[in-house]
Design a protein around this nucleic acid. Sequence first.
DNA 1: TCTGGGGTCCTAGGACCC
DNA 2: TCTGGGGTCCTAGGACCC
Length: 419
Amino acid sequence: MFALVDGNNFYVSCERVFDPKLEGRPVVVLSNNDGCVVARSQEVKALGVKMGVPWFQLRELARQHGIVAKSSNYSLYGDMSARMMAVLGRYSPEQEVYSIDECFLGMDGFERCALAGYGRRIRAQVRQWLGLPVCVGFGATKTLAKLANFVAKKRPEFGGVCDLAALSPVARDELLAGIDVGEVWGVGHRGTPRLKALGIDNVKALRDADPTWLRREFSVVLERTVAELNGTPCIDLEEAAPAKQQIMSSRAFGAYVYDLAGLEEAVATYVGRAAEKLRRQGSLAGAVQVYIRTNPFKEGHPQYQRGLTVPLPEPADDTRLLVRAALLGLRRLFKPGYAYQKAGVMLMDLTGARHTQAALFDTDRGNPALMRVMDRVNACWGRGTLRLAAEGIDPHWRMRRGMMSPCYTTRWAELPRVS
DNA sequence: TCTGGGGTCCTAGGACCC
DNA sequence: TCTGGGGTCCTAGGACCC
């Protein structure tokens, strides 16, 4: 048995905890550079605003309905998430943190307790301790727990908690027959119309479809999903997150960049970020991929987009070696005359620091002690306190965040005041 | 004027090996 | 006139998730 606990409109809810005036008002949270809508309050969803819509296209609607927009504040959401996960972890010996706003809990051995009541306790405690609304779904597989959570969210009569196994078979069938097949975890926006064309348009129909036939028509992935819908677990709980196989860092610029020097600063900055994550998980990178692109939405303007992978002579985690490789690649990619909108780097071929293939010839192995000092200073004094000169000073391409709330829970100077 | 940032897994096809 | 069988590894592209 699994539970899935998921924050409702998570980013918006985090904003509301510290700014109660936002309660009951339509609120959106925007992506980096205040680009698109990435979180919507219930009031905004009711207005028909879709996920991912560019904010500038909503200006008029926002004015009419008084929609409040906030820049995304990941320091705040990340910290609130950590607190929420700590509370939820008290409710089971097994927890998988699945994303910033949801986690699975292993419920084996809880069969004898009335799960719905347990779910209501979870909900009430998160609400009381953190001020965040969550919904809880229970199911015999992760896919079913996800589905139960969806029901808990969408059907007010469930009061935010749904245990699918507690329903009678008839009631369950009726419920599943009323849910669009596209809501199933693992059925995406491509698969949905294809399934519907074959006559499978609700969850019950998918559950009862022939798995062998589905595997032939679609993939082994969908076959597994169907098994999960039938109560056969195919996806395990992953308590400890496995080490990443690749680490990315990329950003759209706050303003177009035209020259190589600007791109070099950005790429060096992103490599710095990625290398920090790399060292935190104790890995070494075997290659660095770098890419740049113009704005694909800007029709009628010259477009250019290219990436390049630069192998390292020996796996490394020293920012300076990684930056050197990335800049080597960037200089080969760069073509003048374009308005660049985004750059990114990806650290690939990651290996554990203990299992590396040494280079045949003598090579620069970097300076681990220096990297440790850099990471410690930055952990203590804030990101970028100690960094490479190549990253630039006060770059003009830095992202725009015009509507950001304070970091209430992570900066002393920005603590909320109660008077 | 203005359109995000991370990830994973699977499959097909090509190159190569014996 | 006729040209095998069994593998691995790599890459690109697609689909999915949040």
